[in-house]
Write a protein that binds this DNA or RNA. Sequence first.
RNA 1: GCGCCAGUAGCUCAGUUGGAUAGAGCAUCUGCCUUCUAAGCAGAGGGUCGGGGGUCCGAAUCCCUCCUGGCGUACCA
Length: 555
Amino acid sequence: MINKAKRHIIRIVQESIKKTYSVKGLLISVERTKDGKFGDFSTNAAMMHSHKLKEHPMSIGKKLCKNIQQSLSKDSFIDKVELVKPGFINFYISKRFWIDVFKEVILAGEKYGRSNTGDGKKILVEFVGSNPTGPLNVVSARAASIGDSLCNILSFNGYDVKREFYINDAGEQVSRFVESLIARYNQIYNPDFPFPDDGYHGNYVKDMAKELDEKYGRSLLNKRADDVKDRCRSFYLSKILGDQKRDVEGFGVKFDVWFSEKTLHDSSKVTNALKKLEECGFVYEKDGATWFRSTKFGDDEDRVLIKANGAPTYFLADIAYHLDKFERGFDKAIDFMGPDHHGHIGRLKMAIKALSIDEKWLDIFIVQQVNLMRGGEKIKMSKRAGRFETMRDLVSEVGKDAARFFFLMRSQSSHLDFDLNLAKEESSKNPVYYVQYAHARICNILKHAEEGKIDMGGIDNPNMELLNKPDEIELAKTLAGFKDICEISALTYTPHRIAGYLLKLAGVFHNFYNKHRVVTENKKLTAARLLIVKSTRIVLVNGLRLLGISAPEKM
RNA sequence: GCGCCAGUAGCUCAGUUGGAUAGAGCAUCUGCCUUCUAAGCAGAGGGUCGGGGGUCCGAAUCCCUCCUGGCGUACCA
């Protein structure tokens, strides 16, 4: 709808330029105005080209404007064209044009807002992935909301999207965890058994040791160390991954692939990646270790790929992982990483470059930290104390909808203060309810209309001309903007725009609701207004679905 | 020291890639429920967009510089 208008206006302006000036190749842009007092669309053509044409913007604008006005046919959907102060040419669109949106929405239904900008491109989004050394925390919850919602949005725009969870089930941290677990297990029988200095202190390790004890009893005490490690490893991994999977699914996220880092090592993909880097000439040996010449790409120092002890670093494994993604045929890969991965990003991109993969193939975003607040007080998060920091506790306290919405209101790159009291509050202060309430209200109107058994003679084709109140037009314009928002949000990987849009739409609707009754004695008007309300509902539902948030019919 | 991110209303944050008088929510104040949900609406106050330069017809947005905060700067992940 908006695109249609935009294209039309661009053509008109171009023709007008052609008629007035002989200069060729002048680009013009037409934008939606952000304020209604400047009309609906505007072009800055006169200002943009005043330099090239060596003429004052207002003077150019005057000519163009006059031309355009003359060329408008009587049945054009452009009501008015005017030239304003610095040189903007503003276009006012007729009410009739906007009103058509309601029918368009109803017709498209759950498809309304979709686009095909993705053109079936295969895109892999990796998010949440973490060390399997404990329950998922609130930052993971934030990443889950953002990653999942972005995937929804990308699919909505015609991309072929896969969600992937990377399990860091190899390397140092896992060994450390196993050591901690073995220590806790031993402590059941011998309280003096030493606990490793760099071990995991959380209480869940003790709980897990108890479960281990339930399964094996004393039998592990006198087994070979290697054997014990293996058993503990697989015991705890399946346990923790099971928990993480449940947490994530309880949050409404379903991953297509749970990718194990260990399989990269086992399948020699890691060594292959190293070989490729070698072939490209960016690898050398020093001090018994194998290094990546990242300084060639602007790094401060070169980075280790194979440690002196012969074990590959996380860095090398991650290179192998991304090479694997590339070889799986994805047109694009997106990673969401935790704040602690800051330094890693640049290096990973360097490695990608070294493998002569297009830099633009990989985009990496940091999901910033979350401060949990309660009544203005920051809750101190400490892994040791194992206090309120897990995704599960968060969801059980504030609910999936509130948690997701709060995470999706903000852009992922900024630090977030998450107020638990506010998220829990069932009141006007809580933005989640604000949006959901709009939906519930609509459902109630529809129910009311049905119960009233109002006979809608000729309801099949209500007379939309009856809709001419400013609030109705405003609603139409807002609904028309949904598609643009979806597209921008997909193109810039910013799901929070959808949340922002929904808040706006809910506001416009609440305003309309308070000023006008939908179901009245006036049957024709009722029929037309029911169409408004139904189409608003569709957009609310579509938007909430993109965020993974429910649209309750009653509140 | 170096690198990345941030600094916008009392608080928490948006700002569609350079547009017009910088926007929401919370908090504060004033109105609105015999009529489809008041979890709502309308209105008011509140700003040197961290400071200073520069580019441009036009800057919160781009460039330079300084100040402040967070994080990173491992043969951890």
